[in-house]
Design a protein around this nucleic acid. Structure first.
Lengths: 241, 241
DNA sequence: CAGTGGTCTAGACCACCTT
DNA sequence: AGGTGGTCTAGACCACTGC
């Protein structure tokens, strides 16, 4: 591991353990450079990591300080890393399974062409899955993916994890995601599969997901009953306001 | 402006203008260092900025490439910067106003104490505002803020912008925000002020907002009719998956 | 004015990709 | 093997804070 990363990990640990208490300053860069037997530039790269993670912040001419909510930030980070790939809140001891409601290949609609930046002649998978958590249905997922970008999708893949297939089997890396979250009235399928009454609102997350290199590979809508899920997000600092 | 930032701005411009086309590589660091008459370390800091913005990505041993969705990322960034402080979609030519429905000071509830990390003895403002866009009601906002952290809030401030008061008048800097987005059935106030029918879902954004130093200063709930708003977000890359 | 973080340098070595 | 990005150095100067 790079030196600056291991120093960042050590400093992060000291913050978690309260050796550098919330709200107080940490030793100055020259002192840290001496302690870790390195140059100030390297210490700065370490502090850049901590600052980017929201654990600390630096003020020119004054010092580097531990944020008062550093504990919370650090907790949240651990939790999100544990449950990568889903935006749901569920514990470690729960089992997620899927039932395939529809799975076929077709040419993309106009919306899909626009979202995935493809032409009418590039076919897409059309997938509808009902997601279960501990045998209880919690979400309906409508997914479209270009067959060119994500080949070799089978029913077997859909029953396990598409993301596993993309990362492990195809060796692709997932990048950014663009999401739109909205509330909606229940539709026919919501009533049928999610047991929605006509007065039960639905929370919908629409997303376009991109690979590392910026290729769009997924356009999807996830719908769930209002009492079965929330969308949680920790928005980083806005340096420019 | 720092040299590395002005170089980053120039490279960003070249990407926007297609001089460095999407999907292709940009000149190597040594070449750029020569062109800009600087050291490779400085070029690297510039590229760090571009990479963090999602415009490009570097592969060790290979080169630095423009992301295929760089245009989209760059567009989104401009749009979010223009409408800072709100998570709403509204154009430049629309006017946002507020009506105060309730405004008083009280001791915090248990939930508020927990969210804002304060004790029962630290009073908070309790604010209910109805937000209008072009004379049409679109959202109901329930806000709690510690009087200690954000002093001198008056009705006048509430009718303009709380954020303006915090940043301009008090000179404080806003940091991260923790949000939970959910769908809900309409309540009494939703029906009264947002003209919800009993079958109209409500989109609720609950948030805890922090200052630069990690102090929580706002705990709020914003509710709007399902057909009056969406929550939009561009989630950055997840390097660790 | 002393102390602190921010930037920049010129060069070095390493790790990795490509051929 | 040659080219590329990643890391690291030792020192310099600058900008800012706070006494």
């Amino acid at each position: 591991m790079a030196k600056y990363l291991s120093i960042a990990a050590e400093l992060s640990k000291r913050i978690r353990e309260g050796i550098y208490p919330a709200g107080e300053s940490i030793p100055d860069q020259k002192t840290l450079a001496n302690e870790f037997n390195t140059s100030r530039m390297t210490i700065q790269k370490s502090l850049d990591v901590l600052n980017a993670e929201g654990l600390s912040y630096s003020i020119q001419g004054s010092g580097t300080y531990v944020k008062k909510n550093a504990n919370f930030i650090s907790d949240f980070k651990v939790r999100s890393d544990q449950y990568v790939g889903t935006t749901q809140l569920f514990g470690k001891n729960h089992k997620v399974t899927s039932k395939i409601i529809d799975f076929h290949i077709s040419n993309p609609t106009d919306d899909e062409q626009k979202a995935l930046k493809i032409t009418r002649n590039q076919p897409v998978y059309n997938i509808i899955r009902l997601r279960y958590i501990d045998e209880s249905a919690y979400a309906l997922e409508y997914t479209t993916m270009p067959t060119e970008v994500i080949p070799r999708v089978t029913e077997d893949v859909l029953l396990k994890s598409i993301y596993q297939h993309i990362q492990k089997t195809l060796g692709l890396t997932i990048g950014a995601a663009y999401r739109t979250i909205s509330a909606d009235k229940p539709e026919h399928f919501d009533r049928k599969y999610l047991a929605c009454e006509s007065s039960d609102p639905v929370l919908q997350v629409q997303q376009i997901v991109y690979l590392d290199d910026g290729t769009a590979f997924e356009f999807s809508h996830t719908r769930q009953r209002f009492d079965k899920g929330k969308y949680v997000i920790l928005e980083p600092d806005h340096p420019n306001q």
